[in-house]
Protein backbone atom coordinates (compact mmCIF):
# COMPACT_ATOMS: atom_id res chain seq x y z
CA UNK A 1 0.00 0.00 0.00
CA UNK A 2 1.42 3.32 -0.85
CA UNK A 3 1.34 6.53 1.04
CA UNK A 4 -1.45 8.19 -0.85
CA UNK A 5 -3.93 5.46 0.03
CA UNK A 6 -3.02 5.87 3.67
CA UNK A 7 -3.43 9.59 3.40
CA UNK A 8 -6.86 9.32 1.80
CA UNK A 9 -7.88 6.73 4.34
CA UNK A 10 -6.80 9.00 7.17
CA UNK A 11 -8.71 11.84 5.58
CA UNK A 12 -11.88 9.73 5.39
CA UNK A 13 -11.46 8.85 9.04
CA UNK A 14 -11.07 12.52 9.88
CA UNK A 15 -14.22 13.42 7.96
CA UNK A 16 -16.25 10.83 9.88
CA UNK A 17 -14.64 12.13 13.05
CA UNK A 18 -15.83 15.64 12.27
CA UNK A 19 -19.38 14.48 11.55
CA UNK A 20 -19.56 12.53 14.81
CA UNK A 21 -17.96 15.27 16.84
CA UNK A 22 -20.18 18.01 15.44
CA UNK A 23 -23.25 15.94 16.29
CA UNK A 24 -21.90 15.01 19.69
CA UNK A 25 -20.93 18.52 20.80
CA UNK A 26 -24.48 19.64 21.47
CA UNK A 27 -25.35 16.31 23.01
CA UNK A 28 -22.28 16.38 25.21
CA UNK A 29 -23.62 19.58 26.72
CA UNK A 30 -27.24 18.49 27.07
CA UNK A 31 -26.66 14.89 28.06
CA UNK A 32 -23.15 15.09 29.44
CA UNK A 33 -23.55 18.25 31.46
CA UNK A 34 -27.27 18.38 32.23
CA UNK A 35 -27.92 14.64 32.19
CA UNK A 36 -30.99 15.23 30.03
CA UNK A 37 -31.55 12.84 27.21
CA UNK A 38 -32.83 14.42 24.02
CA UNK A 39 -33.76 11.87 21.38
CA UNK A 40 -34.85 14.69 19.06
CA UNK A 41 -31.30 15.97 18.87
CA UNK A 42 -30.96 14.76 15.31
CA UNK A 43 -34.00 16.80 14.26
CA UNK A 44 -32.37 19.99 15.51
CA UNK A 45 -29.56 19.14 13.15
CA UNK A 46 -32.10 18.78 10.38
CA UNK A 47 -33.47 22.23 11.22
CA UNK A 48 -30.02 23.66 10.58
CA UNK A 49 -29.65 21.71 7.36
CA UNK A 50 -32.99 22.85 5.92
CA UNK A 51 -32.30 26.43 6.99
CA UNK A 52 -29.04 26.34 5.09
CA UNK A 53 -30.74 24.81 2.09
CA UNK A 54 -33.38 27.57 2.06
CA UNK A 55 -30.74 30.30 2.33
CA UNK A 56 -28.72 28.76 -0.48
CA UNK A 57 -31.80 29.08 -2.67
CA UNK A 58 -32.29 32.70 -1.62
CA UNK A 59 -29.28 33.67 -3.78
CA UNK A 60 -31.48 33.65 -6.85
CA UNK A 61 -33.55 36.43 -5.30
CA UNK A 62 -30.91 38.40 -3.46
CA UNK A 63 -28.22 38.19 -6.08
CA UNK A 64 -24.84 36.60 -6.62
CA UNK A 65 -23.08 38.18 -3.68
CA UNK A 66 -25.45 36.36 -1.36
CA UNK A 67 -24.95 33.13 -3.25
CA UNK A 68 -21.24 33.42 -2.53
CA UNK A 69 -21.47 34.43 1.11
CA UNK A 70 -24.71 32.86 2.36
CA UNK A 71 -22.88 30.21 4.30
CA UNK A 72 -21.70 32.29 7.28
CA UNK A 73 -25.21 33.74 7.48
CA UNK A 74 -26.66 30.24 7.41
CA UNK A 75 -24.50 29.17 10.35
CA UNK A 76 -25.74 32.03 12.49
CA UNK A 77 -29.39 31.63 11.46
CA UNK A 78 -29.24 27.85 12.01
CA UNK A 79 -27.85 28.38 15.48
CA UNK A 80 -30.51 30.90 16.39
CA UNK A 81 -33.40 28.95 14.92
CA UNK A 82 -32.46 25.57 16.35
CA UNK A 83 -31.65 27.24 19.66
CA UNK A 84 -35.03 28.97 19.75
CA UNK A 85 -36.91 25.74 19.09
CA UNK A 86 -34.75 24.08 21.73
CA UNK A 87 -35.65 26.79 24.19
CA UNK A 88 -39.35 26.19 23.58
CA UNK A 89 -38.92 22.44 23.97
CA UNK A 90 -37.12 22.93 27.27
CA UNK A 91 -39.75 25.28 28.50
CA UNK A 92 -42.82 23.25 27.64
CA UNK A 93 -41.60 19.70 27.81
CA UNK A 94 -38.21 18.79 29.15
CA UNK A 95 -38.45 21.02 32.22
CA UNK A 96 -41.37 19.04 33.57
CA UNK A 97 -39.48 15.79 33.23
CA UNK A 98 -36.09 16.54 34.80
CA UNK A 99 -36.53 13.89 37.47
CA UNK A 100 -37.78 11.24 35.07
CA UNK A 101 -34.98 10.48 32.61
CA UNK A 102 -36.69 7.52 30.95
CA UNK A 103 -39.84 9.56 30.40
CA UNK A 104 -37.76 12.37 28.94
CA UNK A 105 -36.35 9.85 26.51
CA UNK A 106 -39.81 8.70 25.38
CA UNK A 107 -41.29 12.19 25.15
CA UNK A 108 -38.38 13.55 23.10
CA UNK A 109 -38.61 10.49 20.87
CA UNK A 110 -42.22 11.42 20.24
CA UNK A 111 -41.10 14.96 19.52
CA UNK A 112 -38.59 13.67 16.99
CA UNK A 113 -41.33 11.76 15.15
CA UNK A 114 -43.51 14.86 15.04
CA UNK A 115 -40.64 16.98 13.77
CA UNK A 116 -39.72 14.43 11.11
CA UNK A 117 -43.26 14.41 9.80
CA UNK A 118 -43.34 18.20 9.90
CA UNK A 119 -40.19 18.29 7.72
CA UNK A 120 -41.72 15.77 5.36
CA UNK A 121 -44.90 17.78 5.05
CA UNK A 122 -42.97 20.99 4.57
CA UNK A 123 -40.11 19.98 2.30
CA UNK A 124 -41.28 16.69 0.80
CA UNK A 125 -39.88 13.25 1.33
CA UNK A 126 -37.11 13.68 -1.26
CA UNK A 127 -33.67 14.74 -0.19
CA UNK A 128 -32.57 18.24 -1.09
CA UNK A 129 -29.07 19.65 -1.56
CA UNK A 130 -27.87 23.15 -0.85
CA UNK A 131 -26.10 24.83 -3.77
CA UNK A 132 -22.52 25.14 -2.64
CA UNK A 133 -20.75 28.46 -3.19
CA UNK A 134 -17.81 28.26 -5.62
CA UNK A 135 -15.18 28.68 -2.96
CA UNK A 136 -16.25 25.44 -1.31
CA UNK A 137 -15.94 23.38 -4.49
CA UNK A 138 -12.92 21.70 -5.97
CA UNK A 139 -10.06 20.02 -4.23
CA UNK A 140 -6.45 20.35 -3.24
CA UNK A 141 -3.88 18.15 -4.93
CA UNK A 142 -0.63 18.15 -2.97
CA UNK A 143 0.60 15.17 -5.06
CA UNK A 144 -0.73 13.58 -8.20
CA UNK A 145 -2.48 10.78 -6.32
CA UNK A 146 -3.83 12.61 -3.28
CA UNK A 147 -7.05 14.48 -3.71
CA UNK A 148 -8.45 16.42 -0.77
CA UNK A 149 -11.84 18.08 -1.28
CA UNK A 150 -12.12 21.63 -0.02
CA UNK A 151 -15.54 21.18 1.53
CA UNK A 152 -14.04 18.40 3.65
CA UNK A 153 -11.29 20.72 4.81
CA UNK A 154 -13.83 23.40 5.56
CA UNK A 155 -15.82 20.97 7.72
CA UNK A 156 -12.68 20.20 9.68
CA UNK A 157 -11.89 23.83 10.23
CA UNK A 158 -15.46 24.47 11.35
CA UNK A 159 -15.40 21.50 13.70
CA UNK A 160 -12.14 22.65 15.22
CA UNK A 161 -13.43 26.18 15.68
CA UNK A 162 -16.71 25.08 17.21
CA UNK A 163 -15.07 22.58 19.54
CA UNK A 164 -12.64 25.27 20.65
CA UNK A 165 -15.53 27.62 21.34
CA UNK A 166 -17.44 25.08 23.38
CA UNK A 167 -14.39 24.11 25.43
CA UNK A 168 -13.60 27.78 25.99
CA UNK A 169 -17.22 28.53 26.85
CA UNK A 170 -17.45 25.78 29.43
CA UNK A 171 -14.11 26.33 31.09
CA UNK A 172 -13.44 30.04 30.88
CA UNK A 173 -16.66 31.99 30.82
CA UNK A 174 -18.92 32.90 33.67
CA UNK A 175 -21.78 31.04 32.04
CA UNK A 176 -19.65 27.90 31.84
CA UNK A 177 -18.99 28.14 35.55
CA UNK A 178 -22.71 28.49 36.17
CA UNK A 179 -23.45 25.44 34.07
CA UNK A 180 -20.90 23.33 35.88
CA UNK A 181 -21.99 24.62 39.26
CA UNK A 182 -25.63 23.83 38.50
CA UNK A 183 -24.70 20.35 37.37
CA UNK A 184 -22.63 19.59 40.43
CA UNK A 185 -24.90 20.94 43.09
CA UNK A 186 -28.13 22.57 42.11
CA UNK A 187 -29.14 23.65 45.60
CA UNK A 188 -25.74 25.15 46.29
CA UNK A 189 -25.62 26.94 42.95
CA UNK A 190 -29.04 28.35 43.54
CA UNK A 191 -28.03 29.48 47.03
CA UNK A 192 -25.02 31.20 45.49
CA UNK A 193 -27.37 33.35 43.46
CA UNK A 194 -27.37 31.47 40.18
CA UNK A 195 -30.74 31.28 38.48
CA UNK A 196 -30.50 27.56 37.82
CA UNK A 197 -33.74 27.47 35.88
CA UNK A 198 -32.38 30.06 33.47
CA UNK A 199 -29.13 28.10 33.23
CA UNK A 200 -31.06 24.95 32.30
CA UNK A 201 -33.03 26.80 29.66
CA UNK A 202 -29.96 28.35 28.11
CA UNK A 203 -27.82 25.23 28.28
CA UNK A 204 -30.48 23.25 26.49
CA UNK A 205 -31.01 25.95 23.91
CA UNK A 206 -27.28 26.25 23.22
CA UNK A 207 -26.94 22.49 22.87
CA UNK A 208 -29.75 22.51 20.30
CA UNK A 209 -28.24 25.54 18.57
CA UNK A 210 -24.96 23.63 18.21
CA UNK A 211 -26.87 20.80 16.57
CA UNK A 212 -28.27 23.40 14.16
CA UNK A 213 -24.76 24.52 13.25
CA UNK A 214 -23.76 20.90 12.74
CA UNK A 215 -26.70 20.61 10.35
CA UNK A 216 -25.53 23.65 8.41
CA UNK A 217 -22.08 22.12 8.15
CA UNK A 218 -23.49 18.83 6.90
CA UNK A 219 -25.01 20.45 3.84
CA UNK A 220 -21.49 20.98 2.50
CA UNK A 221 -20.87 17.23 2.30
CA UNK A 222 -24.29 15.65 1.82
CA UNK A 223 -27.96 16.11 1.04
CA UNK A 224 -30.77 16.62 3.53
CA UNK A 225 -33.94 14.62 4.05
CA UNK A 226 -36.60 14.56 6.77
CA UNK A 227 -34.88 11.70 8.59
CA UNK A 228 -31.27 12.78 8.01
CA UNK A 229 -30.71 13.70 11.63
CA UNK A 230 -32.31 10.66 13.17
CA UNK A 231 -29.94 8.35 11.32
CA UNK A 232 -27.11 9.49 13.53
CA UNK A 233 -28.81 9.70 16.90
CA UNK A 234 -27.82 6.29 18.23
CA UNK A 235 -24.24 6.63 17.03
CA UNK A 236 -24.01 10.03 18.62
CA UNK A 237 -25.30 8.83 21.97
CA UNK A 238 -22.79 6.02 21.84
CA UNK A 239 -20.02 8.54 21.18
CA UNK A 240 -20.98 10.54 24.26
CA UNK A 241 -21.52 7.52 26.50
CA UNK A 242 -18.38 5.82 25.23
CA UNK A 243 -16.33 8.89 26.02
CA UNK A 244 -17.58 8.98 29.59
CA UNK A 245 -20.38 11.48 29.60
CA UNK A 246 -18.98 14.06 32.00
CA UNK A 247 -15.96 15.25 30.13
CA UNK A 248 -15.78 16.96 26.79
CA UNK A 249 -12.28 15.67 26.13
CA UNK A 250 -13.68 12.15 26.46
CA UNK A 251 -16.27 12.92 23.80
CA UNK A 252 -13.57 14.19 21.45
CA UNK A 253 -11.31 11.18 21.98
CA UNK A 254 -14.18 8.76 21.62
CA UNK A 255 -15.44 10.38 18.40
CA UNK A 256 -11.90 10.12 17.08
CA UNK A 257 -11.39 6.47 17.99
CA UNK A 258 -14.81 5.41 16.72
CA UNK A 259 -14.36 7.27 13.44
CA UNK A 260 -10.91 5.83 12.82
CA UNK A 261 -12.07 2.30 13.64
CA UNK A 262 -15.00 2.72 11.28
CA UNK A 263 -12.80 4.10 8.48
CA UNK A 264 -10.16 1.43 8.96
CA UNK A 265 -12.60 -1.48 8.99
CA UNK A 266 -14.38 -0.09 5.95
CA UNK A 267 -11.16 -0.73 4.10
CA UNK A 268 -11.50 -4.45 4.67
CA UNK A 269 -15.25 -5.08 4.47
CA UNK A 270 -18.53 -3.57 3.34
CA UNK A 271 -19.75 -0.40 4.98
CA UNK A 272 -22.60 -2.07 6.84
CA UNK A 273 -20.41 -4.84 8.21
CA UNK A 274 -17.85 -2.25 9.28
CA UNK A 275 -20.59 -0.47 11.15
CA UNK A 276 -21.80 -3.67 12.80
CA UNK A 277 -18.24 -4.42 13.88
CA UNK A 278 -17.62 -0.92 15.21
CA UNK A 279 -20.92 -0.70 17.10
CA UNK A 280 -20.52 -4.20 18.54
CA UNK A 281 -17.02 -3.37 19.73
CA UNK A 282 -18.33 -0.27 21.46
CA UNK A 283 -21.14 -2.23 23.13
CA UNK A 284 -18.77 -4.93 24.34
CA UNK A 285 -16.36 -2.35 25.71
CA UNK A 286 -19.20 -0.50 27.40
CA UNK A 287 -20.34 -3.73 29.00
CA UNK A 288 -16.90 -4.23 30.44
CA UNK A 289 -16.36 -0.60 31.34
CA UNK A 290 -19.74 1.09 31.69
CA UNK A 291 -18.41 4.37 32.96
CA UNK A 292 -16.97 5.00 29.51
CA UNK A 293 -13.49 4.79 28.19
CA UNK A 294 -12.07 8.09 29.22
CA UNK A 295 -13.73 8.83 32.51
CA UNK A 296 -12.10 8.99 35.86
CA UNK A 297 -13.09 7.41 39.13
CA UNK A 298 -15.73 9.55 40.75
CA UNK A 299 -17.74 9.36 43.91
CA UNK A 300 -21.11 7.79 43.43
Amino acid sequence: MDLSIWAMQAFNGLSTFCVLLLMALGLAIIFGQMGVINMAHGEFLTIGAYTTFLLSQAGSVLGDWFQTWYFPVAIVVSFVLAGAVGWLVERFMVRHLYRRPLDTLLATWGLSLVMQQAFRSGFGAREVSATLPDWLMGSLKPTATIDIPINGLFMMALTAALTGLVVFGLTSTRFGVWVRATVQNRAMASAAGINTRKVDELTFAIGCGLAGVAGAAFTTIGSTGPTSGSLYIVDTFLVVVFGGAERLIGTILSAFSIAQTQAATEFFMTGSMAKVLTLSTIIVILMLRPQGLFSIKVRR
Binding site: P101, L102, V234, I283, M287
Partner: peptide, 29 residues
Protein backbone atom coordinates in the same frame (compact mmCIF):
# COMPACT_ATOMS: atom_id res chain seq x y z
CA UNK B 1 -23.10 -7.83 31.78
CA UNK B 2 -25.00 -4.62 32.35
CA UNK B 3 -26.75 -5.20 35.67
CA UNK B 4 -23.73 -6.74 37.40
CA UNK B 5 -21.96 -3.47 36.69
CA UNK B 6 -24.92 -1.52 37.95
CA UNK B 7 -25.74 -0.08 34.55
CA UNK B 8 -29.38 0.85 34.30
CA UNK B 9 -31.79 3.58 33.37
CA UNK B 10 -31.00 5.65 30.36
CA UNK B 11 -27.69 3.94 29.63
CA UNK B 12 -29.35 0.56 29.46
CA UNK B 13 -32.05 1.96 27.19
CA UNK B 14 -29.49 3.38 24.76
CA UNK B 15 -27.42 0.23 24.70
CA UNK B 16 -30.45 -1.95 23.97
CA UNK B 17 -31.36 0.49 21.22
CA UNK B 18 -27.89 0.17 19.76
CA UNK B 19 -28.23 -3.62 19.83
CA UNK B 20 -31.49 -3.31 17.89
CA UNK B 21 -29.70 -1.14 15.37
CA UNK B 22 -26.80 -3.60 15.06
CA UNK B 23 -29.03 -6.62 14.54
CA UNK B 24 -31.11 -4.94 11.85
CA UNK B 25 -28.00 -3.74 9.98
CA UNK B 26 -26.57 -7.23 10.26
CA UNK B 27 -29.70 -8.89 8.88
CA UNK B 28 -29.96 -6.43 6.02
CA UNK B 29 -26.24 -6.63 5.25
Amino acid sequence: AMFKRRVGGVYFAIITQAIASILSILIIG
